[in-house]
Design a protein around this nucleic acid. Structure first.
Lengths: 111, 111
DNA sequence: CACTTATATTACGTTATTCGAAACATCTAA
DNA sequence: TTAGATGTTTCGAATAACGTAATATAAGTG
């Protein structure tokens, strides 16, 4: 990742990437732009984190990739979310929410 | 960590530990119980994660430890939050919140 | 024309955290 | 006496994320 103070993203990166692919196929660069935009700049993905995450997701059967030409006319590798990846996204999302509720409960606890 | 589906905790553990020490000194075991309780069971800390985290925090000057007898009459190592650790807790809390807001923005985005 | 910026990907080694597990010790309760 | 609760230490393995560098081409600017 790479928001100023670093590694809270751990484990959430793959979930965010999957989410970025939910509505349409995107290439790595496009995923990066998309997440940056939706998070209002909080997420500025490091290429050294993003692409390896994509390879892992493909290896696990959550996404598949294909070569195509980008909107800007460049060669790019697009990723498509597969059913297994969609299920994974749902799992991770539910899990993330449970987790963040628990963290917030701790952070806001008195005494 | 060790909630059923694992490692979203990454990076947040130290923050949670610091928070557990905000109101009173505790020993490792007590921190574990405390976090489990407040999170309604979501956080069941792995000792192999917790104690190393404590050592790191002490090394960084965020906490200091001392030997004392626990409520149950056992020898234990208590940890006290230091001013530097309190400042760190505040930083990490603000950061966590920014981060989780951004994650939620991505997860709930349409289109 | 030369240069920079934007687009896009690959690859590498390092660092750090977390996990799981095992081992040790003592006290209390069944 | 056996198990369970309390409490700590330490190890190796796995893995994710980081920073960085290299590569390539297109478009725009001076």
């Amino acid at each position: 990742m790479g928001n100023k103070s670093n590694n809270l993203l751990l484990g959430a990166l793959e979930m965010l990437v999957l989410k970025a692919l939910l509505t349409e196929d995107r290439h790595g660069w496009g995923i990066s732009k998309r997440l940056k935009q939706i998070s209002s700049g909080t997420f500025t993905l490091n290429v050294g984190s993003l692409y390896p995450a994509l390879y892992r997701l493909e290896k696990k059967g959550f996404v598949e990739s294909y070569a195509a030409v980008s909107e800007k006319g460049r060669d790019a590798r697009f990723y498509r979310l597969l059913p297994k990846g969609k299920a994974q996204l749902e799992d991770q999302t539910a899990n993330w929410r449970e987790f963040s509720v628990a963290v917030e409960a701790v952070l806001s606890s008195q005494s």
